[in-house]
Design a protein around this nucleic acid. Structure first.
Lengths: 209, 209
DNA sequence: CAAAAAATTAACCATTTGGTTAAAACAAAG
DNA sequence: CTTTGTTTTAACCAAATGGTTAATTTTTTG
């Protein structure tokens, strides 16, 4: 007897289903909280089949984590490698990063969380895949602008921290901000949309002399 | 036979030991990752005794979470309730908040994490103990300063987000920042110390007209 | 179409984990 | 010094969980 529901699917769907399910469950509950059974259920398959595709929980988790990190870190790396002006970098970073995270609001908390769980391990894993970002160029660029007298004296390290903080943090603290100020989902989304312009403007004002 | 090691302790020590152990384990591994056995070991007692003092994991966790939140939220609330000037508020918030978190660097990630796990539940629990912070006064204060022409036009909501982001986020992203810029523990600590002044200066520069 | 290979499942298994029980050790009170 | 109440422990227990096995169904291929 033919299963018409499944018949619509093509060959390699199962693995993709599993990855999608795993992403959902891992990101929602973290490495410890995620249950293999939940992932199997979410993917609409048997737990044994899950282990048929992925040897064990850790291996599956690592894949999900690396994928998630791969969505975030290149955008940060962009600030470091590109040849744009300082202001342009700041503007395009906010624009791009917020766009990505609006579609995956839980990624930052997930990634930071797991990085805190075992920093050395994950950083090693990360850096060996995507070559480690090198902020030297960016930090030097800031110093150069200061020396040229284009911007007020400002510590490069703190400027970097400020930029990343203002862009990333609100997504991680969404429940807090929503409760504090009484925003619903839509209002929060709009606020984040505004921040694409608000953050660069804020930073640039702080740096102008 | 008298146990001299234990004999040095006085009456109600055990409960305090448990709470300290639970704090350590819960904050390091979260609600899901924490093991009752680990907490018992850390406290140097039997698992049965742990359940003798605290009925179950959830009840113990809730106590730890509320304690942790109670260390952080009043400091945020301070900005909202105090009668100081805008600049003074910003300065004293950074000073106090960073001081507290330097001694408990994992608190913010822990609290935000658990708030994300079940926002409605924890916010209800939180607000019923410490009356919910009300940022209206603070937000109005910003608008008033704008109207008076003392500061550049700036969105109150975004200013609040910026302040909290820049203050809290670096502690949560410490492994990332340390790796990016190559800071050791001491250097990171010093950078956070600098931020007590750096953040207010940055914000005030951004707001000056 | 038959044989080989790949995908999928039901039934298990060993370990971990939160939690309980009943007895022992200890402290306080009379 | 016995009685009574409290603190602590060793030994268990049931449920949950990651993982395995062996058989079945489906797909590929010669």
């Amino acid at each position: 007897m033919v299963n018409f529901l499944k018949a619509t699917k093509i060959d390699k769907t199962t693995e993709a289903d599993i990855l999608a399910a795993a992403k959902k469950v891992f990101i929602a509950r973290g490495m410890y909280g995620a249950r293999m059974q939940d992932i199997a259920d979410e993917a609409g398959i048997n737990k044994a089949l899950l282990h048929y595709y992925f040897k064990n929980k850790e291996q599956l988790f690592e894949q999900i984590f690396m994928d998630a990190a791969a969505q975030l870190f290149p955008r940060i790396n962009m600030i470091f490698t590109s040849d744009n002006s300082l202001f342009e970098k700041i503007e395009s970073f906010c624009e791009e990063y917020i766009t990505v995270v609006q579609e995956n609001p839980y990624l930052p908390l997930f990634v930071l969380n797991e990085m805190n769980r075992d920093p050395v391990y994950f950083i090693k894993k990360l850096w060996q895949k995507h070559s480690g970002p090198d902020p030297r160029k960016f930090l030097e660029q800031i110093e150069a602008e200061v020396k040229k007298g284009n911007i007020r004296h400002v510590s490069p390290l703190h400027l970097l921290m400020n930029l990343l903080s203002m862009t990333i943090f609100p997504f991680m603290a969404r429940p807090m901000f929503q409760q504090f100020v009484g925003l619903d989902e839509m209002q929060f989304r709009m606020a984040m949309e505004q921040r694409k312009k608000e953050i660069p403007a804020f930073i640039i004002n702080a740096m102008k002399r």
